[in-house]
């Protein structure tokens, strides 16, 4: 189950400063991932914390499904929302199983149901229940701790997941792996996920849509491909970086732009699911301007040029 999250003209002003979030309206469709991205102080974390009412908006409302969250009891609301923060969020004095069981216990589940759920979730996030459930967070690697954090947030099968810089403390290689795992998990559980990050690459990788915030205002809210093709202004372009078009190619698959015509006999082969970046590199590598797509069809360098401008 997943619920839509809708921000309706939400403003949060702290006394004596410009609004941290300024008349924000946007909808996160049920079962999709929204990446909130922007520099420090842009209001992305404030935006996220208003969803589980760790911060109350000054005006406007947030609607979960059909219900404005201001009309829901705070504890009930929070137990419906999974919350993942950088790996310090695991309680060091509780075992992995105890950490995951927190919300189910608060909800009064029986022991057998909790035990079964813990094992199910550990398996889902790629940990072995027998070897990991009794361990303590300090004995886990950063990536494992992060997976336990995700399992804990999913424990009571909440319709919405909030993730605050969840992978910020991981090294780049582990980060990419855990990001892939999150996407694999999302394909199975289909939650509405709001993920806060300052890393545009992470936003592009994870988000079905990306919302770029600057000084509390929503600058651009679109699928990653559209943001990469047409950054709205210099600010967004700068956030993406100089290799914007390389990132675009790495976001698109061969299948999305290939032609039906058969390739010349000697053309090197490429998989349909490969990225256009991989295809482009193969063209540079082999000196050919056309590749044969496995299973029929071809990819010409003209297709890449078309893809880059949309």
């Amino acid at each position: 189950m997943a619920l839509q999250v809708e921000f309706r003209d939400v403003t949060k002003a702290f006394p004596g400063t410009p609004p941290a979030v300024d008349r924000l309206s946007l909808t996160v469709e049920a079962g999709t991932i929204l990446a909130l991205v922007g520099p420090s102080g842009c209001g992305k974390t404030t935006t996220m914390k208003m969803v589980n009412r760790l911060i109350e908006p000054t005006s406007g409302d947030i609607v979960l499904g059909d219900t404005p969250i201001s009309q829901m009891p705070v504890k009930e609301l929070r137990r419906m929302i999974g919350y993942v923060i950088q790996y310090v969020g695991l309680f060091p004095h509780m075992s992995v199983a105890e950490n995951i069981a927190i919300v189910p216990r608060l909800l009064g589940w029986g022991k057998a149901r909790i035990d079964a759920r813990v094992d199910e979730l550990l398996t889902l996030v790629g940990l072995v229940p027998e070897t990991h459930r009794a361990r303590y967070p300090r004995s886990l690697s950063g990536g494992q701790q992060q997976r336990v954090g995700v399992a804990r947030a999913l424990a009571a099968d909440p319709p919405v997941l909030l993730m605050d810089e969840p992978f910020g403390a991981l090294d780049p290689i582990t980060r990419v792996r855990v990001q892939d795992e999150l996407l694999a998990i999302q394909r199975k559980v289909r939650k509405t996920i709001i993920i806060v990050t300052h890393d545009m690459d992470e936003a592009i990788r994870l988000g079905d849509k990306v919302a770029v915030l600057r000084a509390g205002r929503l600058v651009q809210h679109q699928p990653p491909v559209d943001i990469l093709r047409h950054p709205k202004d210099d600010f967004v372009a700068e956030l993406i970086g100089h290799d914007r078009l390389v990132k675009l190619l790495s976001t698109l698959s061969v299948a999305s732009v290939m032609g039906d015509a058969a390739a010349p006999a000697a053309a090197p082969a490429i998989d349909r699911t490969a990225t256009l970046e991989a295809a482009f590199l193969q063209m540079l590598d082999t000196g050919r301007d056309e590749l044969a797509v496995e299973g029929g069809g071809s990819l010409h360098i003209r297709d890449l040029l078309r893809a880059s401008t949309g």
């Binding site: 310090v88 927190i102 919300v103 909030l162």
Partner: peptide, 10 residues
């Protein structure tokens, strides 16, 4: 941050 995580979980 631990305390906030606890609050955030209800």
């Amino acid at each position: 941050r631990l305390l906030e995580a606890a609050r955030g979980m209800g």
